[in-house]
Design a protein around this nucleic acid. Sequence first.
DNA 1: CCCTGATTCGC
DNA 2: GCGAATCAGG
Length: 190
Amino acid sequence: MSEEPTASWTDERVELLQKLWSEGLSASQIATQLGGVTRNAVIGKIHRLGLSGRAKTPSQQRPRKQRPAPKPAGRVAASASSSGAGATQTVARASRVVGNAALKIATDPEPETAPAVAARGQAEIVPFGDRKTLLELNEHTCRWPMGDPGSQDFAFCGRESTPGEPYCAAHARVAYQPAPDRRKSRNGGK
DNA sequence: CCCTGATTCGC
DNA sequence: GCGAATCAGG
């Protein structure tokens, strides 16, 4: 009861498309968020609407690529259905979860205590709005990395860090966790 | 390899 | 108008 049988470009979708596009989201991101459409569809629509290039440098011209290589042969002879409605949705690739990317912490495989897990879980969840990019980091922002470096959703925690420390209280706790555990090996050791 | 947008063209 | 296929680059 929540599906959208019609994946056509309704006003709502077009609006969202324009909004997300102007916000700088990539076509694939928009496509996955819209659902039911591929990035090609999004790009196609964007160009059709007249948008494109979003807000590149005004002094940036388009070298115009064009394809010097002509088409060796006609497209696929047999198309897949598509009769009348023109709603050929090949929804197959929809695995780009756009949410809070969990981060992996290299802690010892020891059984974590409930409070520890809770603390870490709390530290992990940081709203995208609060996150900061590398350029936005300063002496008072938590530098805890979140997401995959080099990815689009990569960012830093960005919350207020503990004075003198690179992380906020929650992340500092996580960062400096595996330490207190030496009292067990005292026995002729050194 | 992954990704990005750009373009073409059959439908 | 729509979007898959393809291209060309990062």
